[in-house]
Amino acid sequence: MGALITLQFLLPLLLALLLLATGYFSGRYLERKHYERIIAEETRPGQVMVFPSRLPPPSLSPPQSALVMGSVVISVDYFKRFIATLRMLVGGRLNSYESLLDRARREALLRMRAEAQAMGAKQVFNVKYETAVIAGRGAQGQVGSMEVLAYGTALIGQD
């Protein structure tokens, strides 16, 4: 009887640990692959140059300009959510969400650059970011996913 009770308590604990370990290892693998793709794209030659300055130099007078943007919605995995919940109990930086935001910003910037390049632009000025948290279904204040939007003014027809 005692072994049956121990097994009833041990089985859910082992299952929870297995799920956490699966989330940890699969999340790290997928995050590493995403970073590798982002770095490869960022270092590709011929990228559109982006500038945070509001206005281009007066020497650049493009024949045309247009708003370009890149948007990405990225979700947090269960392991990161679990670690962040534990960290919120004691306070401090939520390191598990920092890489999520970094990847989202970089991916949004790459998508904005791709849109600018498709328009024939070589430079984008006044680049800004907007971030929005999208709460999951029934997630009382927890982050389900987040959207990052990068936007700026593309100078089209400028060499």
Rank of each mutant, 00 (worst) to 15 (best):
Leu86Ile: 11
Gly92Gln: 09
Leu60Gly: 01
Tyr35Glu: 04
Arg81Cys: 00
Ala40Tyr: 08
Gly70Asn: 10
Pro62Leu: 09
Ala84Thr: 06
Gly27Asp: 14
Arg103Trp: 00
Ser75Glu: 12
Leu17Gln: 07
Asn95Arg: 11
Leu20Asp: 03
Ser71Leu: 14
Ala104Tyr: 02
Asn95Glu: 10
Ile74Gln: 12
Leu89His: 10
Met69Asn: 09
Tyr29Glu: 02
Leu89Asn: 07
Arg87Ser: 04
Gly27Phe: 06
Phe25Ala: 09
Phe79Glu: 00
Ser71Ala: 11
Ser61Asn: 11
Gln47Arg: 15
Arg93Cys: 03
Leu100Asp: 03
Gly23Asn: 15
Val50Ala: 11
Leu13Val: 14
Ala16Gln: 12
Tyr97Trp: 09
Ser99Ala: 05
Val50Gln: 07
Gly92Asp: 09
Val72Tyr: 04
Tyr24His: 12
Lys33Pro: 00
Gly27Met: 05
Leu30Asn: 07
Leu100Gln: 01
Ser53Ile: 08
Arg32Thr: 14
Arg105Trp: 01
Glu98Asn: 09
Leu19Glu: 11
Arg87Thr: 09
Arg32Ala: 15
Arg103Pro: 02
Val68Lys: 03
Leu86Pro: 04
Arg37Tyr: 04
Pro52Tyr: 01
Tyr24Phe: 14
Glu36Tyr: 07
Leu19Tyr: 10
Val90Arg: 13
Ile39His: 08
Tyr78Gln: 06
Arg87Ile: 05
Glu98Phe: 03
Arg37Val: 04
Thr43Tyr: 05
Leu7Ala: 13
Leu10Ala: 14
Ile74Asp: 06
Ser61Arg: 15
Leu7Trp: 02
Leu55Trp: 05
Leu7Cys: 00
Val68Pro: 04
Gly91Ile: 03
Arg28Lys: 14
Gly23Met: 05
Val90Cys: 01
Ser26Phe: 07
Asn95Trp: 15
Leu19Phe: 14
Gly27Gln: 04
Ser59Ile: 04
Ser96Tyr: 12
Arg37Gln: 14
Tyr97Phe: 14
Pro12His: 00
Ala40Gly: 06
Thr43Trp: 02
Lys80Pro: 00
Lys80His: 12
Ala21Cys: 07
Val48Pro: 08
Ala21Val: 10
Gly70Cys: 11
Arg81Tyr: 02
Tyr24Lys: 12
Phe82Gln: 03
Arg44Val: 02
Gly46Asn: 11
Thr43Met: 12
Asp77Arg: 01
Val76Ser: 11
Leu7Met: 06
Arg37Gly: 06
Leu14Ser: 05
Ser75Val: 01
Val90His: 03
Gly46Glu: 09
Ser61His: 10
Leu15Tyr: 10
Pro56Arg: 02
Glu41Ala: 15
Leu19Gln: 07
Leu30Pro: 02
Gly23Ser: 15
Leu86Gly: 13
Arg54Pro: 05
Gly92Ala: 08
Val73Tyr: 05
Pro52Val: 03
Leu94His: 09
Leu94Val: 10
